[in-house]
Design a protein around this nucleic acid. Sequence first.
DNA 1: ATGCCTGCAAAAAATTTGCAAATGC
DNA 2: GCATTTGCAAATTTTTTGCAGGCAT
Lengths: 155, 155
Amino acid sequence: MQNLKNIGLKTTTPRLKVLELFQNQNAGHERHLSAEDVYRHLMADNQDIGLATVYRVLAQFEQAGILSRNHFASSEANGPGAGGAGRAMYELADAQHHDHLVCLDCGKVEEFFDAAIEAKQHAVAKSKGFELADHALSLYAHCTKKVCPSRPVGV
Amino acid sequence: MQNLKNIGLKTTTPRLKVLELFQNQNAGHERHLSAEDVYRHLMADNQDIGLATVYRVLAQFEQAGILSRNHFASSEANGPGAGGAGRAMYELADAQHHDHLVCLDCGKVEEFFDAAIEAKQHAVAKSKGFELADHALSLYAHCTKKVCPSRPVGV
DNA sequence: ATGCCTGCAAAAAATTTGCAAATGC
DNA sequence: GCATTTGCAAATTTTTTGCAGGCAT
């Protein structure tokens, strides 16, 4: 795959498999994955790839702009039993930038883009004498559509 | 101090000292502190308080709404040598909510509030069938005022 | 060939937990 | 006095690093 060579990385099995995993976001896995998630998926696919390698590949891909890393603050967004914003979540870095809306009831992550918010962010930074380089915006909210799997009754 | 009793916590030395530390944000410390920061400040004040206790107190204060926790993604925002968004930063939960602008050159954290952004966030959540409960917005930017201590030359 | 990569194991870093002793009310 | 709280140490969790061997080019 050219993708990898283009960024100065040799085409190796771990890298290929990790890339595939993110690009084939159909086979029963979400778009946002933690290092551990990736590792488990590879294991399930009988790939003998170490967790340390997964971390290294994820870091390389992030630096190359192929993946982007998020830190969600809600415990629900991470695995069940995961406390706080312990783990990083990776996702394919699409052409279109977006922010996240995390469901506090089931942990599902939706994406959104709001041009007005983006513009305002730049304005805020500039007004304070800064040039905006990046930002992270996560909304934590409750589903009002009564469709959350793990939704508490009556909430 | 009533603050503590009001939230169902006994008035103990560790709690009092931690609260004091955040309320007296004058004596050579920043407004945003990590658990380790708090611990070091207490040590410097000859308080014999364990790090585990600091973590417990911070968690209690956060739940009580006295402090709020942030996870900044830039390495500069955390201590020198701190990688990524490893540690949580706590600050006094003011009456006025605000978001953060983190300087990518020196790690300094400025605060801002933008009503338009806040309103838009609610609108976005509602439009997706959610009720916004909380959010985290951090801007990462470069200082254009040439006043950053650790500012790379010519940037 | 040769230098980039990997797996494994150990190290780090941040935070949590178990438990007996200490403390507030 | 008694439940709450603390300090210490050990355990967890997440991520990073050292190193000897392996693989892509």
